[in-house]
Design a protein around this nucleic acid. Structure first.
Lengths: 290, 290
DNA sequence: TATGAAATGAACCAAATGTTTCACAAGCAC
DNA sequence: GTGCTTGTGAAACATTTGGTTCATTTCATA
């Protein structure tokens, strides 16, 4: 099957738009080809049933059923897909130190994500969403290793929260960016150990000004965790030198989802607008375009 | 599915002869149930088609299709399929529950991470690590929603790879930053649907210059996935409007861990230096300091 | 703009699908 | 033996399947 996918990927450029759509879907969800009916796969891919037949023929198969066979075989023999998580990790460990490292990273990330979601109360998430939504301004701050995370939050959230202000991105000191923070504003911080001095400075400053604090951090005992009005916690445990931010990212994404879900319908039409504009301006590729 | 097989095995004694035949075959070849038609399975088991329906009903399922579902799920590597974005938007009108949204996000992230790690071959990870380590220069590019991810990669990796060059961060056009890319260099791209036009432009440019391409993306059929020398894939499926980047982040972290693990000892002492300096310069807080 | 080739989707077909029905057989109580 | 329940498979059912046809659309070329 992998051979077939490689072939498909190789010929991809020379296919017609509709065949590309079909091929892309097949490559993305090969199990569906094995399990679902041709029509169902076609519907998922957004093409006509006949297009699937044409794809099969274009790939050198006499019929769609013949085309489907390799996929069914790979699902059948692919003991990997049957393996439980622990079995899989053990097997991975058998593949040398690369496999071991990969396995332990996967384990760490999954358990971090699980713990983050398990540990959080839905009310706290609600509170956080409300705090951010109702704030006058939200200042977004993350330093050192967390600047990228703060950056990510800013990018995702600014589409649904118009009152976001990035801190520390402009090159100046963070206090410059915070100069106008005030009551009714919120400082959103992202921090993990080792905690940067700049974060705690920003925290103190914002508090003194009467702003509320929202934090995502790795411990209740952290500077941000202790002083925040609303805080979410995500472990960053990792078998390697750098803390893993995957769980933090997951929390951020969930939070933004909540903000949208329980926000007014204005937000939704707004996002639709945004996407439409980006498409019209040619900033993003249309489906099938390459 | 294993639960179902256990139940089947438990009730086995109390079944009628024909149902036993059917149940035995189902337990022996569960993949066949997932892949073949009911009639085919019945024929293999040596029973009438209706017997299969009866087995399904006797197991507490309303239809044979419902009975088959657990088998298909267990065969399937790609776990839950999520409603399309538009469906999600519709669902929003019905105002979903906070807990439900949180749960489905957790499910999505975990399954994305697991699939990303399961789908990757350890050799590919090795190749990627080597490609990046041995490159003359590595240009790091991500646009739109992926700029934060690229930013994260740059931040984490630049501590272990001194020859990293950010693209598009300086405010100018990305091509400006790529101007000096050449053979022996590598373009590292991060992209998910909807693919930005800028990414494919950068890809073309780098290829023309003879540079190698490394990509983390969400599909083999994506512009980056198709043209990359080494590519890693991570699903970004999510029950909400924005794709989830958590799995991409997890892959990035693993890759960096590999680069460190198999790099020369210079890298390690280098990182130690870096941390020492940051501590000494008072950029980060000592333990207990707040 | 006109022309021809390629691409596409709607409609259709025969075959196969899951399901239901029903007649019959086997076993059991009386 | 007669009734009655349970188990069973053949046949018929509506539905869905993979495959084909063909009119229409698309688009590059003339």
């Amino acid at each position: 099957m992998q051979d077939l996918i490689d072939t498909l990927s190789g010929n991809y450029a020379s296919l017609s738009p509709q065949l590309r759509l079909a091929a892309k879907h097949v490559m993305d969800r090969p199990e569906d080809v094995a399990l679902k009916s041709m029509r169902a796969v076609a519907a998922d891919a957004g093409v006509a049933p006949s297009t699937m037949v044409r794809l099969a023929q274009a790939s050198g198969f006499k019929s769609y059923d013949a085309f489907r066979e390799p996929f069914q075989d790979s699902v059948r023999t692919g003991g990997a897909s049957f393996a439980s998580r622990t079995e899989w990790l053990v097997q991975l460990a058998g593949e040398g130190d690369t496999g071991q490292l990969t396995g332990s990273m996967a384990e760490a990330v999954i358990s971090n994500v699980e713990n983050a979601f398990r540990g959080v109360e839905t009310e706290t998430l609600e509170e956080a969403a409300q705090l951010l939504r109702n704030a006058n301004r939200v200042y977004v701050a993350g330093f050192g290793g967390m600047s990228a995370v703060a950056n990510y939050f800013y990018f995702v959230a600014h589409m649904v929260l118009p009152h976001l202000v990035p801190v520390g991105a402009s090159g100046g000191t963070s206090i410059d960016d915070l100069a106008h923070i005030w009551q009714g504003d919120v400082l959103a911080t992202f921090s993990v150990e080792p905690y940067s001095r700049e974060t705690s400075r920003a925290l103190e400053f914002a508090k003194r000004r009467g702003a509320k604090i929202f934090a995502i951090t790795d411990s209740r005992a952290s500077p941000a965790g202790a002083s925040a009005d609303v805080a979410l916690f995500a472990s960053t445990a990792s078998p390697q030198f750098f803390p893993s931010q995957a769980a933090v990212i997951a929390l951020i994404e969930t939070l933004v989802a909540l903000i949208v879900a329980h926000g007014d319908e204005k937000i939704v039409s707004w996002m639709e607008d945004l996407e439409r504009v980006r498409a019209e301006e040619g900033l993003i590729l249309k489906r099938g375009e390459g």
